[in-house]
Simulated scan of single mutants.
Amino acid sequence: MPNSSRRFRRFLLTASAVALSVVAGTLTAPAIAAPAALDDSFYVPPAELSGAPGDIIRARPSRPGTATEIADAWQIMYRSTDALGEPNAVTGTVLVPKGVDPATAPVVGFAAGTQGPAFRCAPSKMLQGQAFYEQPALDGLLRSGYAVAMTDYEGYSPEPATSYIVGRSEGHAVLDAVRAALRLPEAGLSDQAPVALRGYSQGGGAVMWAGQQQPDYAPELDLVGVAGGGVPADLVQVALPLEGKFGFGFLAYALIGLDNAYPELDLDSYLNDRGRAEFAKMEQNACTLELLIDYAGDSLSEYTTSSPVLTPPWLARVGENKLGGSAIPAPVLQYHASGDELVAPGQAETLRDDYCGLGMSLTWKAYDTDHITLVHTGSADALAFLADRFAGKPATSTC
């Protein structure tokens, strides 16, 4: 493609992404850093890990994004479990609404959508810098009187190694963030609090994984409901339509995430020189906006000597992270955009059918819109669903 045509394409895509970001509630501003008072050494895990999943490693007061008038916040590092079943340390944020008795507050495990691989993109950093694009959804939960436990997911540190889209790690991180919130003395929450989970896109997949894992991994939690939108349930079916398209940066990031979670996959052995340089640059610098703009329309052939996507080792690990293999014990709201250009609608419908086949209580909603718009427009229905679950109202299944 001539340079002038490529530049024009980038211009159009930039304008599109900025417009969509505004629709979602706020523009992700990668240049905004965390407050200087919050030392980044907080994110560096200790050399040795001890304790049980959900135990607090360290905590400090933090900022609730733009919700300073309605909530208090603490940043936490807590013990969790990676995709291989090994102990790891994960950071996150606990938020408690002001004017609410924390001892009686319900708790929502909030799983953020894609923020990007770079350290500065961690959800807690975006929140502190008032650049968290899901702030309106977070505010809705706080204004409803719910405490929130928001995970950063695994791997956000000054030397980032995030396990993006690896459900077996993300589900643990969500559940252990809730456990950590309940164990944080400053928050004052009850360990008997009813718990719900909510997330969209990456977060939608994470909360569905958490729901599937909860009976065995965190059976003490009183899980009353799960709301997940834009769910990437089958990574193969999500990845293939992104090749050469607007969302290619998400496909590339998913390869990085899988490689971080499963080192034997050896992504480097598939990359050419350009791929090594660009993937390293992505991991050090890219947040959501860069993923959408800088890599839009690219193809794996530009970055690899051979594609790992359909090789047996990669397919095996991807298969381990396919949703729908076990039931979620609480009522579920699953929603998706019929015009979703980033997370294929067909594979979400397959997950719906698989869950219904397992006898779950599932409410399915489809919206005539695109992926990024639904970040914002799906919030009201998700919030109403959780309110009914906390109120003890029976769910209406569409299965």
Rank of each mutant, 00 (worst) to 15 (best):
S301Y: 13
S326V: 13
N272L: 14
F279E: 02
A337H: 11
R9G: 07
W74C: 08
S307T: 15
M282H: 04
L197A: 12
L258T: 05
G54M: 09
A89T: 10
L175E: 10
P2I: 00
F248Y: 15
A47D: 05
A149D: 11
R63K: 01
R179V: 07
A34M: 02
Q214V: 14
G346I: 10
R63F: 01
Y335W: 04
Y295I: 09
A196H: 12
T373M: 01
G228E: 02
Y335D: 02
C121G: 09
Q284H: 10
E86I: 05
G257F: 03
L221K: 13
A227R: 00
S50N: 11
V44F: 00
L342Q: 15
V107I: 08
D101Y: 08
A59D: 10
P215Y: 12
L141E: 03
C287P: 05
P53F: 03
R79L: 09
T14I: 05
P102I: 13
A67F: 05
M360V: 02
R317W: 03
T81N: 13
F248V: 08
A111Y: 13
A15Q: 10
E243R: 14
G54Q: 07
I56F: 03
G99E: 11
A196Q: 11
A337S: 15
G247Q: 08
P30F: 03
Q135E: 06
L300V: 04
S124M: 03
L138H: 02
A382Y: 00
P87T: 13
R389N: 03
R317F: 06
Q115V: 12
E243F: 07
D354M: 12
A330F: 02
E186D: 14
V44P: 01
L310E: 11
Q130G: 02
V178C: 08
G346Y: 05
V178A: 11
A67M: 05
L182A: 05
S62I: 00
L189N: 15
A344W: 07
A254Q: 10
H371A: 08
T162I: 15
T104S: 15
G230M: 03
G188I: 06
L258V: 04
S80I: 12
T28D: 08
Y164C: 12
P45F: 01
D72Q: 07
V226S: 08
A337Q: 10
M77Y: 02
L271M: 10
R79D: 03
P158F: 09
H172L: 06
A277C: 00
N3W: 01
A366P: 02
D266A: 08
I56N: 03
F132H: 09
T377H: 08
R317A: 07
T26C: 06
A89K: 04
L251W: 09
